[in-house]
């Protein structure tokens, strides 16, 4: 996989320097029972994190289709965070195990098509882990800022 990836033209353009006021857009797809509840707890505890993330609620991390992730990067987002219940704690018994497997494959796919794999990140945040959610969002935002804007695959670039 490594060698194949190296031969492909990367979609990432490190030579493009982001304007100083550029802020990344990050989509957070959170499961209703653990991570969404955890993000609510971050709010009720008034813990601060960077304002770049836009949160979408799904019932379970297993609902997250690879399509959603690719579509996000294609259209609006510079990075995506998917978060679910800790392995073993899934509200739907085994959903997050399916999600975990799918994400591993998605990462390889991203590498293959030339995205930096940190564009999509996964975490497990329980309903009691408000501080952890703030930490995860801060880290993801930092990572995406380092990677810079995702120019090439934006919808408007296609249309031009």
């Amino acid at each position: 996989m490594e060698t194949v990836t190296n031969q492909l033209v990367s979609i990432e353009k490190p030579e493009i320097v982001a304007p100083p006021d550029w802020q990344p857009v990050i989509i957070g797809i959170l499961c209703n029972w653990c991570s969404y509840a955890g993000s609510d707890l971050t709010g009720t505890s008034r813990l601060q994190y960077p304002p770049n993330i836009r949160i979408i609620r799904v019932p379970c991390s297993s609902r997250v289709d690879t399509w959603f992730l690719i579509k996000s990067l294609q259209t609006t987002a510079d990075g995506v965070l998917v978060s679910g219940c800790h392995p073993g704690d899934c509200h739907y018994i085994s959903g997050n195990y399916f999600a975990r497997r799918r994400f591993l494959v998605t990462k390889k796919l991203l590498n293959f098509v030339g995205f930096h794999e940190n564009r999509i990140q996964f975490s497990w945040v329980s309903a009691a882990e408000g501080p952890k959610f703030a930490k995860v969002v801060s880290k993801v935002t930092e990572d995406i800022k380092k990677l810079g804007p995702l120019h090439l695959y934006k919808k408007e670039n296609f249309e031009k």
């Binding site: 297993s62 609902r63 579509k71 609006t76």
Partner: peptide, 28 residues
């Protein structure tokens, strides 16, 4: 939970309240 929706290759299954059009609409 929606596990079946994400696994379905022919998009034959949809989850009421969290359908593909709903979530894609949010993303775009």
């Amino acid at each position: 939970c929606g596990s079946c929706v994400a696994i379905c290759r022919s998009t034959a299954i949809n989850l009421a309240g969290f359908t593909d059009p709903q979530i894609i609409n949010e993303i775009v």
